[in-house]
């Protein structure tokens, strides 16, 4: 810094001090600008009213075997699928080596409630809603870019990188589930 100045301030008294002042002023200026810019970006984050909707309860008793309902959680759709025994067996028969994102069916459901498959209904590729009971694996097919999921919601084919996301949820009773 001291060498490139055309003021030749090396020759002026206190050149070291002046350099220090330049650096210090610039540093404080950058921090100051950052402090002003940050809230202007941070305001784009989800606001309090959005965050307040972070859990939802759902009564499963109306969902018959083989049926599927879509409910809304945090503004996103969630699949609640009442699986048939055939679908569960199909999902559990798949060898791990066939899977792009290996995960057992047992790890995707709650023990004792294996018939209930609860997943965020957004394709892990770019967030479209897959169509149920379709595709080559009897699971879900995403119409946007052709991703296919099996009866456990695991990715089998297409551009999606991971299995459909299982949200945090717990059974409050045998028929009521709380998501989030």
């Amino acid at each position: 810094m001291a060498t490139e100045s055309n003021l030749a301030h090396d020759d002026t008294p206190n050149a070291g001090r002046r350099d220090f002042l330049y650096v210090a002023t610039t540093a404080v200026g950058i921090v100051g600008v950052g402090a002003v810019v940050w809230p202007l970006i941070n305001q784009m984050n989800p606001d309090a009213s959005v965050l307040a909707l972070s859990s939802t309860e759902f009564d499963l008793s109306g969902v018959e075997e083989g049926a599927s309902v879509t409910i809304k959680w945090r503004g996103s759709p969630v699949f609640v699928r009442h699986r048939t025994q055939k679908e569960i067996d199909e999902a559990r028969a798949v060898p791990m080596s066939d899977l792009k994102d290996p995960q057992t069916d047992e790890a995707r459901v709650v023990a004792g409630h294996e018939q209930w498959l609860i997943m965020v209904a957004l394709c892990t590729h770019l967030g479209c809603i897959p169509v149920g009971e379709s595709g080559e694996y009897d699971g879900w097919f995403c119409p946007c870019h052709g991703s296919q999921y099996d009866t456990s919601g695991r990715i089998r084919k297409g551009p999606a990188p991971t299995n459909l996301i299982v949200p945090p949820y717990k059974f409050l009773s045998d028929t009521v589930v709380q998501i989030g």
Partner: peptide, 9 residues
């Protein structure tokens, strides 16, 4: 989330 201002559009 920053772009959308929420968990979904």
């Amino acid at each position: 989330q920053l772009l959308r201002g929420g968990f979904a559009v």
